[in-house]
Design a protein around this nucleic acid. Structure first.
Length: 667
DNA sequence: AAGCAATAG
DNA sequence: GGTTCTATTGCTT
């Protein structure tokens, strides 16, 4: 059973086109069929603004950053406004255009993570691409449903208008995938008020390519037999995700301008220009092959703030700007809860002659005590100490004795370290005890950072047994994990989702607010789970007056993925201080990790694993993922290299969580 | 570890 | 193309 996974991954190495070895053919056809989703929110920034202020729904709306329209709603599009159009031109086309300033990304970022977190609550394999797109590997969910479900037809469009009734029997996994996609889009709509498109296909490349075929707010499935059609439909090589401007130019120089050109171009010639690995990847992309996996994104690896302007040429203005950027960055960093270990300052200089402006940057480590100031909420101290550091970096790039002309400044925190607090020992076991302390808003958490002792939203895991052969560890290595004890009482109807009245802490306010409707539900029904059930099931539940509990359980079992909703769903990625987990005792059913992902090693007790906080689950998963290439695929020579370079993924803490494995072996 | 290029939305 | 404001990955030193 578990060998399926290995077969699947062995398929990674199947070489690309030319003469496909017989064994590879066999492998790919007998391997389980991956089902990959790609989600793309419709004009995301505009949607967020329309949720904040519903009056904007009926007017042509543009989101303005500086002097350009970065995106606009569909009303504006009907009048000829497009993305990245200048404000002047947009106003000419559409004098009625309503503009909302969009330089501050806070609201978009928050909504963006809510979408990702909602998806993660169904399945851990979610990868972000920008603020408004997500990939999801739903193979396990689909496999689970295929065991119970009769063959069904497709939900939404099928690329090329294939006769879907027949095709659903040929590709049942994609048919089921299309239903999962529809349900997830519906969940996003009913819980967050957002519409978007989805693509359903067998790999990331194809899922992304197909998701945009019907817009807005629709979905389409790509059948394997139409892969060459969709690839052939691309007008240029630039349309292929992964082939950017520079790559396209180099290809052009080789005489490769169409996708067909690329497909037919000899691999070794291509390898001479790009190197073997890139050449292979390019050739594969040309035929719609993409072996890359959906890699869970997790919390961001860097936070940055930047501002562009026509001209800054005085040191005084620089100091002001840096102060401004640092202030907001530190605030964000504080909410995140991790501690930045490096500071980077980036500038863009004006150049009249060359109009060619790339950015230059300098970076330096942040002394530990300064990083701690941020975590502990001594924000003013942090600013005071970081400002000279930033100025030092600035002076490394700009000689202020001479004239200078900058058009952009960026301040970035990276090397974000999950905080290990100074005191307050507790064991891993504290995860399994319900913490009785009251819920905290993000703001409250912020003030709570200083006192390290348990009963709030955090607990520390000390690794008592660090005789790990591969890693040299500091004597008292420890991991701090945070959670919020109570579960989310989220039950909002779609029409009450208008959050325009909420302030900057919209996330927590929104999540904590309860709706009147909640009291209508039987007491033993989790409102949050209820809300995401299909409407017919909701109706059935509401109409039945007896034995709701058992009906509820049965329905949940019909939608195994829904178990995940018994877990807290939001804020997985907002860093340790904001991550939640709670309600452990109640959550005895096999939840998300077990139902939607079978990559848990055999020596791990799935029940215990399911009860871990999401963040820890993901960390462990990330580690397990990395171990696999070592276990199999002994052939490839670059696997070794891959493993070493990939080691960064779990935010630098890989060895730590590996040590935690011993806690999960069933005794 | 630092700096930059490339890619992406 | 770049324009905006991010964010990630990989190459090179």
């Amino acid at each position: 059973m578990e060998s399926e996974v290995e077969e699947d991954e062995a398929a990674w190495d199947t070489p690309c086109p030319s003469p496909v070895p017989f064994s590879s053919l066999e492998l790919t056809s007998s391997a389980p069929h991956k089902v990959i989703l790609h989600f793309d929110m419709d004009c995301f920034y505009a949607q967020v603004e329309m949720i904040r202020n519903p009056a904007l729904r009926t007017v042509p709306l543009g989101i303005q950053q500086k002097y350009i329209i970065v995106t606009c709603n569909y009303v504006a599009r009907e009048q000829g406004v497009t993305k990245l159009m200048s404000v002047t031109e947009a106003k000419e086309k559409c004098p009625e255009l309503v503009l909302v300033k969009g330089e501050d990304l806070t609201h978009y970022r928050e909504m963006s993570y809510k979408v990702t977190e909602l998806l993660v609550s169904f399945c851990l394999l979610v990868e972000r691409l920008g603020f408004d797109e997500n990939f999801m590997d739903i193979t396990k969910i689909v496999e689970g449903r295929l065991q119970q479900t009769k063959t069904c037809s497709f939900k939404g469009h099928v690329y090329n208008n294939s006769f879907s009734e027949d095709k659903a029997r040929t590709y049942p996994w994609l048919a089921v995938g299309s239903h999962v996609a529809a349900e997830l889009r519906e969940a996003i709509h009913c819980r967050l008020g957002l519409t978007g498109c989805a693509g359903i296909a067998t790999n990331k490349l194809l899922a992304k390519l197909v998701s945009g075929t019907f817009k807005p707010n629709q979905q389409t499935t790509l059948l394997p037999e139409d892969v060459s059609n969709i690839m052939g439909s691309l007008s240029s090589i630039r349309k292929v995700p992964g082939i950017g401007h520079q790559t396209a130019k180099r290809l052009q120089a080789l005489g490769v301008s169409s996708i067909k050109d690329l497909e037919l171009f000899p691999l070794d010639s291509l390898a001479r220009e790009f190197g073997q690995p890139s050449a292979r990847r390019l050739k594969n992309l040309a035929i719609g092959t993409d072996d890359s996996t959906v890699t869970p994104t997790g919390p961001p690896q860097s936070l940055s703030d930047e501002d562009s302007f026509k001209k800054i040429s005085s040191t005084k203005n620089i100091v002001e700007k840096i102060h401004e950027l640092l202030t907001s960055l530190i605030e964000r960093m504080h909410i995140d809860g991790r501690s930045p270990q490096t500071l980077r300052l980036t500038i863009r200089r004006y150049s009249a002659t060359n109009k060619w402006f790339s950015r230059e940057s300098r970076q330096s480590p942040i002394p530990n005590h300064i990083g701690q100031k941020i975590v502990t909420g001594h924000i003013d101290d942090a600013i005071i100490q970081l400002k000279p550091l930033a100025m030092k970096l600035f002076h490394k790039m700009v000689d202020t004795n001479k004239a200078f002309h900058l058009t952009l400044i960026n301040v970035c925190f990276s090397n974000l370290q999950t905080k290990a607090s100074a005191s307050g020992k507790s064991s891993l076991m504290s995860f399994f005890k319900q913490s009785p302390s009251p819920r905290k808003t993000n703001t409250n958490i912020a003030h709570d950072q200083g006192d390290s002792n348990s009963s709030g939203g955090r607990c520390n895991v000390y690794k008592s047994n660090p005789h790990n052969s591969t890693t040299q560890q500091t004597p008292k290595e420890k991991v701090t994990l945070n959670f919020q004890p109570a579960k989310c009482g989220l039950t909002r109807t779609a029409d009450s989702l208008t959050v325009h009245s909420l302030g900057p802490n919209a996330v927590s306010e929104w999540r904590e607010s309860s709706s009147p409707e909640k009291s209508q539900l039987p007491p033993n029904v989790d409102g949050e789970v209820f809300r995401c059930l299909p409407q017919e099931i909701q109706n059935e539940l509401m109409s039945s007056n007896t034995s709701t509990d058992s009906i509820y359980k049965n329905k949940i079992d019909t939608f195994p993925e829904m178990h995940s909703l018994k877990r807290p769903t939001t804020e997985h990625f907002r860093g340790p201080s904001a991550s939640i987990s709670g309600d452990f005792e109640k959550n005895t059913s096999l939840s998300l990790a077990g139902s939607s992902d079978a990559k848990i090693p055999g020596n791990i007790d799935p029940t215990v694993f399911a009860q871990l906080p999401p963040e820890l689950q993901k960390e462990l998963m990330a580690d397990w993922r990395q171990e696999k290439p070592i276990l199999k695929a002994p052939s490839s020579k670059k696997i070794t290299k891959n493993v070493t370079t990939k080691e960064k993924r779990p935010t630098g803490k890989g060895s730590q969580s590996n040590n935690l494995l011993k806690y999960f072996k069933p005794n």
